[in-house]
Simulated scan of single mutants.
Amino acid sequence: MPVPPAQVTSGQFLIYDARRFGDVIEDVIAELKSEGTWKGELKQQRRIMQAFAWITGNRELGSYDHRDVAAFKNGLKRLPTTFRYGTPATGAMSRPFSDVLAELPPLARDQQRNNKTINRDLSTMSTVAKHLAQTAWKPRLPGAKVIDFAEATIAIKESDSTVLRPPWTTAHLKCLFESPIYTGGGGAKRRLKEGEPLPTVWHDAAYYAPLLWYYHHTCREEMCGLEVADIVIDHPVPHFEVRDNLHARSRRRDGWREARRPPSDTADPSGDDPAWLPRVREGDQGGGPSGPLPRALPLRRKARRRLVLRSRLAVHG
């Protein structure tokens, strides 16, 4: 990004950059993406940088110091989990942070942000600070670190990171697989509408992804982030690989969860008639039932692992 003339200063940075933080966000994103540090659409990274500018007053780059790290961290902790940021042009971030904060109700315990979420935002800003340390935030003293977001991260207790998510109940699964996605609904934005004149079952990602979740207990990002190279069909046992790529990142230990296991291959956990369970069959183009689901076993995920599709499950191109 082009650097405007700057004056030598007696402050903590080698120069005083008069550009405001919000003015360089797009340039920083483009540069980090071109270097391969960041990949994808980067909507989350952009929102985090915009939130930093908003919380700290979007000041001139040369005016920032270590106190802004604490201000950003504490500002995030005061926002509820249901908070909607908007953009610098519309919504909450188009108004002063102090004004928005004054209008928020007292923060209830169940509305407090998870420390992992706060650490994620701090980690993103740590990457930004390291990048800006080459230009606008280059320390006046060699080797010094003026703005250190990594130091502000919150220690996560091991017990907090190993809590298993509650399993889905039979009622949850019935609700999912008896929805119009599988029984027939409308098109486009009416997929979940019942009573359509011509109910249709569309065999797309919304149809197949939950089936694969049920079989293999993958998370949404892992399944919807599969690439063509991850699908292997020229093998005695067709399978797919869950691995880090441009569209998905494995959650590893944080993604561990409990999974319900039907007592047999022909009955659901409640012992009721299993007719509600979804089925797919070899060569089926997404049609109707064709035999019971196999057992669903809990799995531990690694950064790269191979998951085997049951022989009854066809992978369609």
Score class of each variant (00 low, 15 high):
G283S: 08
G288V: 12
G62R: 08
K77V: 09
R46N: 11
R310W: 10
G40C: 11
D160R: 10
I154P: 00
H239Q: 09
G187K: 05
K157P: 10
W256P: 10
I231C: 06
T218Y: 05
H66Y: 06
G271N: 07
F72W: 06
I29D: 01
D244C: 12
P96M: 04
L198H: 09
K193I: 13
R47F: 06
K174L: 01
C224Q: 02
S290E: 15
L32C: 06
C224F: 06
T82P: 07
L277F: 10
I181P: 15
R252Y: 02
V228M: 11
S250R: 09
I156T: 07
Q45D: 13
T9Y: 03
T37Q: 09
P263T: 05
V28R: 01
E194P: 13
G288E: 04
P199H: 00
I48R: 00
L132V: 03
D23A: 06
T90S: 14
R20P: 10
P139W: 06
W137H: 08
P274F: 08
R261Q: 14
H239W: 07
P180S: 00
N74F: 06
C224I: 05
T170R: 05
G271D: 10
V28I: 00
R310M: 05
M125H: 08
A89P: 10
L76A: 09
Q45E: 09
F13R: 07
I181Y: 00
S264E: 15
W168K: 13
M93A: 07
M125W: 03
E258A: 14
E222Q: 01
R190T: 07
P80W: 11
L61P: 00
I181Q: 11
T82S: 15
M49Q: 13
E221Q: 14
P269H: 05
K33I: 00
G86W: 00
L212W: 14
R165D: 04
P80L: 05
A248M: 03
N58L: 07
G317F: 13
I29C: 10
Q12M: 11
A133E: 04
